[in-house]
Nucleic acid binder design. Structure first.
Length: 697
DNA sequence: ACCCTATTGATTTTT
DNA sequence: TCAATAGGGT
């Protein structure tokens, strides 16, 4: 058994690192704790929290103060709370939740900042629309700018008066929109030449009006416009309805804290210790907030500690501060941890070469040898076949089983869906009008592992499948289906009838299953138990098959009076997809796959670890990020010579993603590269030492 | 043969 | 939302 022996010297050294963190805490010296993948970073954070509680706890209690622990995700909150145990002294929350709690009670000041934001946005929008700037981005407004001042005014007035007409036709094809505005078409031929430019122009005109109206309402002290609202469920601001989202919340908070000393004082006095988990993912605004607090505490001579815990190389999202932290928050004492508690030394060697910086890890275990890393090159027109052949090869040679799974990392969710066995579910959802229009919501609303984030249509199907899984499972207790209150009230005869009815709910496709539900629904008497079950299951208007289809249609397609034929076809395909695909989809979102091979996106594995990892790699990351990996390997040998800012940013972004994915492996790591590697084989070898070929034969 | 517009299909993730 | 491509017009 490897990874089991820790020499005393290593143990002492690890303790010494923890001690230096605790010493800094006691001296109120702000720190940045850098630890690579698998170093036990969260462990260090928890130990530090425990230290603060033990040493400073009594003083905190007597001053009615708390420790603030900020994380990036709600999942991380739960993990920390669980590992720390109950402590009233530590407030664990996400930065957004935390800042909102702090600023939401100061609405007068918030509205002032909001007003300023609206004014500056107005200035920008008006500039875009009217000033003759020759920037390429503003090309959409050239037609409008070309109009006479009075014509501009007339056009604006006309559009304002015809808002319903505009929005009713918004998603229709270009000829339909042109026909709808036939009346004005002659007057403004230039503006109708290009429909997407027309839409951009009109949207901007409406936005300007919305903002102006909003400013007016604020000035008039309209009761609906006296407070800012923050909604974490939505991804974008609706400024004119006083509604802000994530980024703007951080922006406003930073401004509030910068501006109002009293707010700084409240925070510094209530939270003398602030610990930030995964600092590389927090945005610049947050670091600026911390920096303001820190200088203010110094100014008013308060004891105040900020500790950043993270790893700049694991920053894989663009808005994270990454290694720019030291530029914003200066005079942080760096504390590095070089031990790795996760992987075998063969894996550690590779991830060290990927990051190639001052954090060169070594295993804390003296028996760390025993893993293996190999890089394969393989090309085939049949990508999926090649990937399956490769994973199957290792499935047998590593004796993969439910207890010893093989985890396969690919770049896109589409490929995850295809390899996981539900390609059609993904494909048909992506073709619906709704998810074409809100393309960025497809992955989160269809593949989210948090069911509260599922979209309306996926959620309805999810509930039905969950219900089906209960029925199909021979171990299911009736209690799981029938609520405990009602079970005793049912006679034995009733129960037998219900069980018989439930057994009739089957189908080879989703469609057949749904139909069987409504057949039994109709058979069931009005007050019958099954009816109640089905009504609880579906939030639809009429409990018929047609009612169900209508619900899906309304959620997945544009709500138009005329149903389009192609939409019908997509919906039919969606419903006629094999129920097994849906079962595999259910397993995926519930993370209960009953397969030896489990597929993930690279990004989705952050924070996880697996014994056996296979990474599928290619030149491109989709079509919009071409040559991501090929150019990384081309540049890696000369990485220190890079000068262009964009080149450096691109390089580190890929480096970080590669680091995060390779560092998931505990024992075995394989990479399969699906494109020609001749041009950058030296780069690959500089990290993986050698390569081998893999082909279908 | 070229230019412009309309339509189509697409990276990842969190708050 | 945005880039790539298909398609129409000159």
């Amino acid at each position: 058994m490897s990874l089991s022996i820790i020499e005393e010297s290593a143990s002492l050294e690890e303790n010494a690192i923890q001690k230096s963190i605790c010493n800094s805490v006691d001296k109120f010296q702000d720190i940045i704790f850098n630890a690579g993948a698998g170093a036990g970073k969260t462990f260090a954070l928890i130990e530090s929290l425990k230290h603060i509680i033990a040493v400073h706890g009594n003083r905190l209690i007597s001053h009615n103060q708390k420790i603030m622990c900020i994380t990036y995700t709600n999942v991380a909150i739960n993990e920390i709370k669980e590992r720390l145990g109950n402590s009233g002294l530590v407030q664990v929350s996400t930065i957004h939740e935390n800042l909102w709690q702090l600023i939401k009670n100061h609405q007068n000041e918030l509205v002032i900042i909001h007003t300023e934001k609206l004014n500056s946005e107005l200035l920008r929008l008006k500039g875009d629309l009217t000033e003759n700037q020759e920037e390429k981005i503003l090309k959409a407004f050239t037609a409008y700018r070309g109009l006479e001042k009075t014509l501009q005014q007339n056009f604006t007035t006309f559009m304002m008066e015809n808002k319903p007409l505009y929005y009713n036709n918004y998603n229709k094809s270009s000829p339909v929109i042109k026909a709808a505005f036939d009346e004005v078409l002659q007057q403004y031929p230039t503006i109708f030449k290009n429909i997407s430019n027309f839409k951009k122009t009109v949207n901007t005109i409406f936005k300007i009006d919305n903002y102006e109206q909003c400013l007016l309402k604020i000035k008039e002290n309209d009761t609906d416009y006296t407070a800012i609202k923050y909604d974490s469920k939505y991804n974008s601001d609706i400024l004119h309805r006083m509604l802000i989202s994530h980024d703007t919340l951080l922006e406003y908070s930073a401004e509030m804290i910068k501006r109002y000393d009293l707010l700084k004082r409240i925070i510094v006095d209530s939270f003398p210790f602030i610990l930030i988990d995964e600092y590389q993912d927090t945005s610049k605004n947050v670091i600026e907030i911390m920096n303001h607090l820190s200088s203010y505490a110094l100014k008013i001579k308060r004891k105040f500690f900020i500790g950043y815990f993270g790893d700049s190389v694991q920053n894989i999202y663009d808005d994270g501060i990454g290694n720019a932290l030291n530029d914003v928050h200066r005079n942080l004492l760096p504390i590095n941890k070089k031990f790795n508690r996760r992987s075998h030394s063969e894996v550690i060697d590779v991830i060290n070469r990927i990051r190639n910086d001052e954090i060169q890890q070594e295993s804390i275990y003296s028996d760390s040898v025993g893993g293996s890393v190999k890089f394969y090159r393989g090309q085939s027109a049949e990508k999926i076949d090649l990937i399956n052949a490769f994973t199957n090869k290792y499935k047998s040679s590593w004796n993969a089983s439910l207890n010893n799974r093989l985890h396969c990392l690919v770049l896109t969710n589409k490929l995850v869906a295809e390899l996981s066995g539900f390609p059609d579910v993904y494909a048909y959802f992506s073709r619906t009008a709704f998810y074409k229009r809100f393309y960025d919501r497809l992955n989160s609303e269809l593949l989210s592992k948090e069911t509260s984030k599922l979209g309306d249509a996926p959620n309805l199907i999810y509930r039905i499948l969950r219900f089906k899984a209960f029925i199909d499972n021979p171990d299911t207790n009736l209690n799981n289906i029938i609520s405990k209150n009602e079970l005793p009230a049912l006679s034995f005869k009733d129960l037998v009838k219900i069980v018989q009815q439930l057994k009739c709910l089957t189908g080879k496709t989703l469609n057949e299953f749904i139909k069987s539900i409504f057949i039994e629904y109709d058979k069931s008497d009005n007050g019958g138990y099954l009816r109640g079950l089905i009504c609880d299951l579906m939030p639809i208007e009429t409990y018929t098959y047609e009612g169900f289809v209508k619900y899906l249609y309304d959620k997945l397609f544009d709500e138009q009076d005329d149903t389009l034929e192609q939409d019908q076809v997509i919906l039919e395909n969606l419903l006629n997809t094999d129920i097994n695909q849906y079962n595999l989809w259910l397993d995926f979102i519930e993370d209960t796959q009953r397969t030896d091979i489990v597929y993930h996106t690279y990004h989705g594995t952050k924070g996880l670890e697996f014994e056996n990892v296979i990474i599928i790699m290619e030149n491109n990351f989709g079509t919009m990020n071409r040559n991501k990996f090929s150019s990384f390997f081309e540049k890696t040998i000369h990485r220190n010579d890079l000068t262009d800012k964009d080149d450096i940013a691109k390089f580190s972004n890929t480096k970080n993603l590669l680091y995060v994915s390779c560092s998931r492996a505990i024992r075995n790591l394989r990479v399969l590269y699906l494109d020609d590697t001749t041009k950058f084989i030296d780069g690959i070898n500089s990290i993986f030492t050698t390569t081998e070929t893999f082909s279908l034969e």
